[in-house]
Amino acid sequence: MAVEEVESRLLAYGHTACAGCGEALAARTVTEAAGPDVIIANATGCLEVFTTRFPRSAWRVPWIHSLFENAASVASGIEVALKALGREKEAKVIAQAGDGGTADIGMGALSGMLERGHDILYICYDTEVYSNTGFQRSGLTPLYAHTTTSPSGSVSYGNLTRKKDLPAIAVDHGALYVATASVAYPQDISRKVKRALTFTGPKYIQIHCPCVPGWGIESHMTIRVARAAVNCGLMPLYEIEEGNMVSVRKIKKDEHVKVDQYLMLQKRFSHILKDSKGKDLIKEIQAIADANIEKFGLLINNE
């Protein structure tokens, strides 16, 4: 690759993410799609830590990190300041955080940002676990996943609650554009980011990103695992503009897999794949996927 091309990457190589990191790929895709005229407010988390080891930064766009819970609030301040300075045309404002920084500790700030109607694109990199601090459960951890604070054990089958439906919550806040995406489909991420940025007002995109050590997968399996999540129906990919569903990524019949095909790729589910009680639990997870398939009309025949 030509040096100029490498040097023009908005999220540079050489950051210290784990090998095979899904979040790093997703962030790179988002940054490239958004282009150079952006200001990014980043929450604490893996993305922040692996891109900005002093004195080196992976960012070639203006970027600020202050805390874990406030990316949406910092972005709100930036957006209003740009307006006050009459410079709002110069840069788009992006807030970004992981699932913990979005659905848990940053939930209040996100809700306020959406409600106040700021012109901000909020990106949630959903690794379904607090990766940075060592794989504790978050509000987006799926049912029965083993994490270090929802461990499987002799009297427990991992995380006993379902994933918080954050995109639906964002829609109910009146966000103009809400989309789900997966790192398995970078072009789709790219398109959705570009589409989102055509709206003036609050936008929310949630990107499903496998975490190699957090999910217990091999580093070369990131994309495949992410794709299986989509193709089993657990991770429906859709776009909602002004409250109306405008696109749904369909699953072709021959791509469609049962949830166990997805779960078996990951150590965090190994405890339910081995015993007989686990079979019932897998059925529960299958039911979630089936409900999604019905709700979003995911399944189609091959063309």
Partner: peptide, 27 residues
């Protein structure tokens, strides 16, 4: 969770999950 406190609460979560400690753990 926050580094470097995590090992304390993770171990407590494990104890609860393994039935070694009969307590409520709220994450």
């Amino acid at each position: 969770p926050i580094t470097p406190q995590t090992h304390i609460v993770e171990e407590l979560a494990r104890m609860v999950a393994d039935g070694e400690l009969d307590a409520k753990f709220i994450m």
